[in-house]
Simulated scan of single mutants.
Amino acid sequence: MEDRLDRDLDGEKLTAILVFMLPGLTLFAIFSVGPMLYSAVGSFFTWDGFTIGQFAGFETWIAAFQDDAIINWDNLLAFQYPMGALPQNIIWMVVHVPLSTLLGLGLALLFADLRGRSVLRSMVFLAFTTPTVVIGLVLLFVYDPQAGIFNGLLRSIGLEGMVRNWVQEPQIAIYALVAGGVWVQTGFSMLLYSSALAGIDPALLESARVDGAGRFRRFKDIIWPLVKPVTAVVVIMSMIWVIRIFAIVYAAGGPSGGPGGVFSVLGLEVYQAAFSVPIEYSKAMVVALIELVIALPMAWYIASMD
């Protein structure tokens, strides 16, 4: 009798859980799973504007990887810009993610014991709360060859020969923009690391200090093992942010992706293919799916973390 009652209660709990989850699952299916499946199927068809046409197989996929706007194989092998949206997105990831992660950790450690740390953290985090479109426009002003703050700083320290329009020279323009992205994402990384550091028992650090452990030893043996799980989240969230980046690139370089497309990333190519004449809807789906294939395993890893 008692076992039957327990089974009835478990059944009622399961029913209640499903009822509460149903609205969320329905919205998720309509606005996330549905578009993913629609894009996956649609990428194998030709499109007349927004009207589906004939089955094309892998023709659109092959054409996308042969498109210089996606991968410029000649420039990629010579390591010259523009290399195409996909390699440039990867360069964003390789440069941006380590820098924003290390700077975030460094600032979190620096501010941990300072007076006024709340104000300092707020100042650093402000960039992350600013719309990325605004950040892109600010970067154009910062790098302006005449009135820009960065070039003004170079002049003030006697480096007049280095003054240039940093966002117009193909071989350095993308790195100037990546620096702005690092400025944005560092605040997010710092906030997560600061939360992790706040959870460390001060008695552990004090005991290690009394036992003669220096700053590096305390970091290596106590702090790093405790913030290591946060590092995985910081790195993967930064990688997803880079893969999805669009607004800062559009604001700084326009729909063409800067001079010769040196700013172009996958998100910008989706926009170009879907909304610029001639409309290439199947190409937009292919590029969007490339983004999804890169980002989905990272999101899944975060969701599966204990």
Rank of each mutant, 00 (worst) to 15 (best):
L103Y: 01
I222Y: 04
D3V: 13
V184I: 14
V233G: 05
L22S: 14
L99E: 01
G158P: 06
K220W: 15
W300E: 02
A56G: 06
D211W: 07
S238E: 04
W183A: 01
A40S: 10
A16R: 09
T15R: 14
L109A: 07
I71W: 09
I71A: 08
E160K: 13
Q185P: 01
V210E: 04
V163S: 05
S207G: 10
A112Q: 11
I30L: 12
R155C: 03
G161Q: 12
A173W: 07
N151P: 02
A203Y: 08
P170A: 08
L126H: 00
I290W: 09
D8A: 14
F141M: 15
I200F: 12
F246Q: 02
R121W: 00
G180V: 06
G104I: 00
S156Y: 05
R244S: 11
G253H: 08
L37M: 05
V41K: 10
Y193A: 01
E291W: 10
L25T: 04
L120K: 05
D3M: 11
V41R: 06
V234M: 02
W241G: 11
M93P: 02
L114M: 14
M239R: 04
Q171V: 04
G261A: 03
I223V: 15
I62C: 01
A127R: 00
G180C: 07
T231S: 12
W183T: 00
P229D: 10
G53E: 07
K283V: 03
A56F: 04
A147L: 15
P145R: 09
L105T: 03
Y281G: 04
F65E: 06
F128S: 00
L14C: 01
L226Q: 15
